[in-house]
Amino acid sequence: MSTTVVDRGVWSPRRLFGDVLLPRATTLALWAWVVFNLALVGWVGLQSLKESGEVWISPFGFPDSPQWSNYATAWKAAGFSSAALNSTVLTLLGSFLIVALAAPAAYVLARSTRRVAGPLTGYFAMGMSIPLQTVVIPIVVIKLSVSSFMIDWVTGWWDNRITLLVFQVVLSLPFTVFVLTGYLRSLPTEIEEAAELDGAGPLRTFLQVVLPLAKPAMTTVLVLNVIGLWNETLLALLITPLPEERTLPAALLSLYGSMQYSSDWGALFAGITILVYPMIVLYLWLGRRIVEGMTAGIGK
């Protein structure tokens, strides 16, 4: 018994470690991490408003006078205007298409009593574990064949951005179907049945009853896909290599690659800001929901 008494002493090594040292050190580290993240985001913004020399000489100071021209440089010279347009269109259209395809499929998978529904759900989930590397080569082959086929035989022109859009949509389907199926399964069926009794067809039930009910989950997967597509790089580099086809990450990469010749560091940071800040705004706006959505399909 006496040992336990000693053990419960405030300064026993065990207590010192488990109640004082470890928690305090971890808390300190966590706050340092928080400060670092916030500082990094703010610092990128500040750097983007400095002259190129200033970027190097006082990397942690405030800009003397805000150089908005950096944005003009990145926008015009480095091709960020077309890249921003490409990224915006591809991201918004892509995310919309993903949800438009995945939501009806997830709905019937979640609700159907057919025997195939279970295996099909698993079939979609399987896609989440096929690494992108396994399909990259076929995708490159398809991209080349489709563009030459369309140009030679069908339309006389082709835009690789369409190919990029299609594959970004298809590759995001497994995750989206998986998350939405899980969510829709948790919804009560009574309201749908009432709608059906009132004579609503399946499409109408889906559009006017199920979608509004599932709005939180729809928003979440939409936002997750927006983030995913906005930052997607590998496919964009492989499918759309031409400057006018580039998306923002690819444009930033090429601007960064040219830094050793041009050294326009202010413009580089303006480019980083153009790529990062829209997602930060989205996160500030819908942050809690994003985290919940990313963790919902998996954690609970």
Partner: peptide, 29 residues
């Protein structure tokens, strides 16, 4: 229920896209 009739029409676009442009390319790989 009416939604059972919608099973294939609702499912097919996603299923076809996923199979033709993801699973088959993986096998082609």
């Amino acid at each position: 229920p009416a939604r059972e009739r919608a099973f294939w029409p609702f499912l097919l676009p996603a299923l076809l896209g996923y199979t033709v442009l993801f699973v088959l390319p993986a096998l082609y790989g």
